[in-house]
Design a protein around this nucleic acid. Structure first.
Lengths: 210, 210
DNA sequence: CGTCTAAGCGGATTGCTCATCCGTTTGCAC
DNA sequence: GTGCAAACGGATGAGCAATCCGCTTAGACG
């Protein structure tokens, strides 16, 4: 059963209107007015604000995943990680809803859940490769990397969007700092390069120093 | 003219009640009910939510300043900076309102404004000393340090409060990374060790690499 | 100790937003 | 053309922020 044509039209109108609002405090009433539909229609399509934000963000999330795949294809693990971080941050800064979606414990749409899972897996691969190559701290995990990215995004926002590079540079340099250094490709025992369960979930990592 | 006794009592009750609420979304109505006073009384004492948060936070802000002074007294500039960052972060994590107060462009109470100004100056001293000693990136400023700290706090919160040390370690290592390294005490020309204007305000720094 | 008054109190009230619910409309399958 | 499930839309109720103003009271002064 494909959805009714008017429903499709309403959905588009709502998304269009929502795109013109501040991504953080979306007033559903407001969106309805701008979209020229009733409030009830908005709530029918997007039962919660988060559902709407997810819908607005899905495209960028897909871009994020693609970007991660491209990064993972890099032969040099250090370059891969740096690409993932830098370009990921650019995406997050451009799309104010992305962080909320990335961090949300529950996903309204299965499509988003799928994208997040894929992104998580690829990120794990990139992190594992960098760890195995000894170009980053051995205790880095995909989850920690994600949170660090969110922290940096926050710092940039708090700076009024200025000096994004400063913050990323510090982060990347800090990650490199504890690396096993010189010895290159020899994979340390116990670390996996393949895929595992997605990043949302248990933080199975060795905590850092005290 | 000292304030009337009942006014003092009300103020205390309100603060006591507010301390039992989530620091982020304070409902003034709610605080009033808990404190057993009328809403009007709350608004009389604290015209805005931010004013209330400031009042709740003032003690910890004073602790922050004291801590900064202690750090600045450290003979080793590297130790000074690390102390300031680590202990400052601990304070910020313990007091959920501190970040908001630190970042607020306007202060409701002159006492808070004073504390922030002092904190800013001492931070500048610590940063300048570390820069002059070549133990941190030369483009670090007090403002960038503050924002970085807020970013790290955010990362920790997003982690559910876990692994705070990981994030600080990365940050500190990242700051050391671009340092002029070995050559110790020779102060680079142009950097000041003395006090200047407080940290809130213009970001007069050299942006990092692209 | 009594009086006076300005400071303080409190809650009714207004204005706003969210979110739901339900009577009406409409696309579309047959 | 007809029937109906899906979709629409806005009236509605609940909740909170913030103000306003008549009542109360601390404490200064004689």
């Amino acid at each position: 059963m494909s959805p009714r044509s008017d429903a499709v039209r309403s959905r588009e109108r709502i998304l269009g209107a929502a795109r013109q609002c501040a991504r953080d405090d979306l007033r559903l009433n407001d969106v309805a007015r701008r979209a020229g539909v009733g409030v009830g229609t908005v709530y029918r399509h997007f039962p919660t604000v988060h559902a709407l934000v997810e819908a607005l963000t899905t495209d960028d999330l897909a871009r994020y995943r693609d970007l991660a795949h491209r990064a993972a294809a890099e032969p040099d693990p250090a370059v891969a990680l740096e690409t993932l971080v830098r370009e990921g941050l650019a995406l997050q800064l451009a799309d104010g809803g992305l962080q909320a979606v990335l961090l949300a414990p529950e996903d309204a749409s299965p499509e988003v859940a799928q994208l997040k899972a894929e992104l998580g897996e690829v990120t794990q691969q990139v992190v594992a490769a960098a760890r195995d190559a000894g170009v980053v701290r051995a205790d880095l995990t995909a989850e920690l990397l994600r949170n660090l990215g969110c922290g940096v995004e926050h710092a940039v926002r708090v700076s009024g969007g200025h000096h994004p590079d400063f913050y990323v540079d510090v982060m990347l340099a800090g990650l490199r700092a504890g690396a096993r250094s010189q010895d290159a490709v020899v994979p340390a025992k116990g670390t996996t390069t393949g895929s595992g369960p997605g990043l949302p979930g248990d933080p199975s990592l060795t905590p850092a120093s005290a």
